[in-house]
Design a protein around this nucleic acid. Structure first.
Lengths: 238, 238
DNA sequence: GAGGGTTCGTGACGACTGTCACCCCAAGGC
DNA sequence: GCCTTGGGGTGACAGTCGTCACGAACCCTC
């Protein structure tokens, strides 16, 4: 089924063809059925704000398709991109479980299908289906793991170039495509956004990228970037 | 019961007087009993290493008393203290649940009683007691929350003085004691360790502390520090 | 009380990077 | 065609902070 934003929607978790490969969603039929009855499906255009840092959680958001940018901001207006969430991730889990305010804001980066489950319904669901609770614990473990990696990168890097190298290596590991010219990455973020991912400024990213190009560590063609991983690894002291 | 390290040990979770106030341990009697049968109690002296970053998890560690320093290190030898875990926290959760390597190392800061539960036993326990699974999810949520705070602090601070101010404010919120001279904190860490908590160097901490003292933002008397919270808050741009 | 190991205080110096300022370019709206 | 807007490139400059070096203060053990 096509929607206004040109996204295939999946109204029924029971029929969802991706379910088996999604850690959280991959549950036995009764649990899926129960989830189907409490969830609200919606498709958001690019740039939609799902929730804002500091807000009290109304529930959890399950990303069925698309990508969601998670950010936190200082009162000065400086923004840090904490993570780009992808299909299969559940957002707002910790806030909903602890009833504490969201610590990040969420905004779609592309048209995305998101299933919303109200907090009370979700907690009831977890209590009713131990399997769902285990999957939630796993989901949280993964979040914690990736937060830990972010802390390492922010706290242990000696220089900004090291953080940038680490970011690119991370991207390679996650979605790189091996080619004879090096790992190929689709860069879908602006310099500004890359800067926000590692806590620096746009100018610095521009300078570092030209530096990397000059030193033949990366090559940019359109929205593709070819990365010489060995060269970047040499910059990383962790 | 007293042990060689001068710590009161609590061999039986069922009898533990702290249980009610500890989020994870506060479970119904049957679950506590089950936990009692699979746990191994030990008392470690100060400086004991519970596990090391990169190791495959053998199980989880429940901190019954004492404090545990969680660190991550770069290959250059630079160390970042990710967190100081206190009584009631469960360590090694995410690694045990996902079967992925520990992302931090753990070392006791003082004599500590720690209950160890083998990975298989722990997972079985979670499957057998939905309540334990919920408590685990809550525990993980809290960990995630605190990691998120750390990311904010590391990524959004403009300066090192801001990070230090934020660290002190954090300590005040957690264990400060209100007095007429400002919040009173017990500082049990060396300058070196404080530096490692915010990703800077010992010298910088020394200089910042004298700066803070000169500006009457803090006052140090022995191992106590009196903090003027309003003054520190003015340094924080978040 | 002597001595060795930590911990802390401080100066000099330089590299890195944030800030500000300006320009260029491409895309898209009118 | 013209203008606006957002993204990207670059130079100048100053401030911060890491590094190195050294000495003082403190705290154990013997």
């Amino acid at each position: 089924m096509k929607t206004p934003y040109n996204v295939d929607t999946q109204n029924d978790c029971s029929d969802c063809s991706f379910r088996a490969e999604r850690q959280f969603c991959n549950m036995a039929a009764p649990a899926v059925k129960a989830l189907d009855t409490i969830k609200f499906t919606a498709v958001y255009p690019k740039g939609s704000v799902l929730f804002v840092e500091g807000e009290q959680p109304r529930g959890v958001f399950i990303v069925c398709s698309g990508r969601v940018k998670l950010t936190t901001s200082s009162s000065e207006g400086k923004t840090l991109i904490v993570k780009i969430a992808e299909a299969g991730e559940v957002l707002g889990l910790s806030g909903s479980i602890l009833s504490t305010a969201f610590e990040v804001s969420a905004e779609t980066l592309e048209p995305s299908q998101i299933n919303f489950v109200r907090r009370e319904d979700f907690v009831g669901f977890l209590n009713a289906f131990p399997e769902a609770c285990m999957h939630t614990a796993q989901q949280l473990s993964e979040k914690y793991h990736s937060a830990q990696r972010e802390i390492r990168s922010l706290g242990l890097s000696q220089s900004t170039s090291e953080k940038l190298a680490r970011l690119f290596l991370d991207w390679c590991a996650r979605s790189g495509e091996e080619t004879p010219n090096g790992m190929r990455l689709k860069v879908l973020l602006t310099h500004e956004e890359i800067a926000q991912m590692i806590g620096t400024t746009r100018e610095t990213i521009t300078r570092l990228l030209s530096d990397f190009k000059r030193r033949k560590m990366i090559e940019v063609k359109g929205s593709s970037m070819f990365v010489q991983m060995a060269a970047l690894e040499a910059l990383v002291t962790i």
